[in-house]
Design a protein around this nucleic acid. Structure first.
Length: 423
DNA sequence: CCCTAGTGATACTG
DNA sequence: TCTCGTCACTAGGG
């Protein structure tokens, strides 16, 4: 998953941090990471098909921790599979089935320890489990959104539009999708490692004048990604070297020059490799996401002139706006069956009397919701007071409204929201 | 010498 | 029928 070895490669810009530094902010969460870890707590029961909600409690431990720091969490879940990943999913299913049979045999042989090892290899996170978590979150007034396709692209959209100031995940792909600020390896206390998009040039050891985010993404993709394999023998170090040696910006020309740049004689870059590379790049750039404000599907970044949605079916085939909306709300599964009846409309409560000052604390489905915007200079924001807590809880419908406060006036103005900022 | 790619051990328990 | 692993270590290739 993700880019092999990317986090160790970025160790120079990985900084220890704590989520309490984002008091009053919105944090979007890659729900799969928590569900996967939580599933280990009840692997036997899940494999046996027994009813358990241990994994929900595991995830809610994180949610409650975030709420205790006056942070607004948004849980992001995966939606439909991309067409290009059908084969990968099939292989994973087969691998799980194989381990399931292995575990059963080991159990019959009385080898309990080995049986468990095989068993944990076959646990899968079902949409049903994701729904249980969504229900638990919404009981607490925590926003959830299911991506039309991959949660990765949806999380990047929330980061780029200023809806979320931090993304919590374990998946290094989020860096390629263009998130501003990402926290990796966050534990239940809120401690983790932070990566900021603005520091990536330092990791590549490139001067500002020669660095572009495109170069960083090409480097990662050259070393191999989920959408496209690498050239044999090319990892991050060699890919970085190649990207530093060229001033070319045309991807096709860069790829053709790779054997020359790296001085590798018997390396051929086929036309198929180049076309596959560009499809993968477009999947990072233009994957379909759901915009909760307009309630419409949109590509993560605006299409360049002349490109239409039909040219990008591999980055997520178009679907009807209502289908995407019901999927986003968690009312419909990826097969198109109705599984819930969550209606966000009644959420807009007029008794929340501070929405002019903190509209970003409302539900993202509330008509009065407004993104908070980017944190100035990408630094960790330090809040002057802890008064935000009451406001956040009010907005979530947990506690009664209290007196307003005027802390916003002392803060620097937020940067305007800019789409496609890294180009 | 650096770098890639494979191996084995390992995960969780309001 | 139903959603993604990762890390440390190292052999072996260029």
């Amino acid at each position: 998953m993700g880019i092999q070895g990317l986090l160790p490669f970025l160790k120079n810009i990985l900084t220890p941090s704590h989520i309490r530094n984002y008091r009053g902010c919105t944090v979007a969460i890659d729900a799969y990471c928590w569900l996967h870890k939580g599933a280990f707590a009840c692997a036997e029961k899940l494999a046996a098909g027994e009813k358990t909600d241990m994994y929900v409690y595991y995830c809610m431990k994180y949610i409650n921790m975030l709420l205790s720091y006056d942070i607004k969490p948004i849980l992001v879940l995966d939606g439909c599979h991309l067409p290009s990943k059908k084969n990968v999913e099939k292989k994973r299913r087969e691998r799980r089935e194989l381990n399931r049979k292995k575990a059963a045999q080991l159990l019959r042989d009385g080898k309990r320890k080995e049986a468990r090892d095989a068993l944990v290899q076959c646990i899968d996170i079902t949409p049903q489990m994701a729904l249980e978590l969504m229900n638990a979150c919404r009981d607490k007034g925590v926003d959830c959104i299911t991506a039309p396709y991959e949660a990765d692209a949806q999380l990047a959209y929330l980061s780029q539009t200023g809806i979320a100031q931090v993304i919590i995940t374990e998946d290094s792909d989020l860096i390629l999708f263009g998130c501003h600020t990402i926290m990796f390896k966050m534990d239940t206390s809120g401690a983790g490692m932070l990566i900021q998009n603005k520091d990536l040039n330092k990791a590549m050891k490139l001067q500002d004048a020669h660095y572009t985010f495109d170069k960083f993404r090409y480097m990662c993709m050259l070393s191999g990604c989920d959408y496209h394999a690498n050239l044999p023998g090319i990892g991050l170090s060699k890919a970085c070297k190649a990207m530093k040696l060229t001033r070319q910006i045309d991807v096709r020309l860069i790829l053709k020059k790779i054997p020359m740049l790296l001085n590798i004689r018997n390396l051929t870059v086929s036309a198929e490799y180049i076309e596959g590379f560009i499809r993968a790049d477009n999947t990072f750039l233009y994957q379909l996401v759901f915009d909760p404000l307009s309630r419409k599907l949109t590509p993560l970044n605006p299409y360049p002139p002349g490109v239409k949605a039909e040219d990008m079916h591999y980055a997520g085939p178009p679907m009807s706006p209502d289908h995407a909306f019901q999927l986003a709300l968690g009312n419909m599964d990826i097969q198109g069956n109705r599984i819930a009846n969550f209606d966000p409309a009644p959420r807009s409560q007029s008794w929340i009397n501070d929405t002019e000052k903190t509209p970003y604390l409302l539900s993202i489905w509330d008509p009065n919701y407004k993104p908070r915007g980017q944190v100035p200079e990408g630094e960790e924001p330090t809040r002057p007071s802890t008064k935000g807590k009451e406001v956040l809880l009010q907005a979530m419908g947990i506690s009664k409204p209290k007196a307003n406060e005027q802390r916003r006036k002392s803060e620097p103005p937020l940067k305007p929201i800019k789409k496609g900022w890294f180009r």
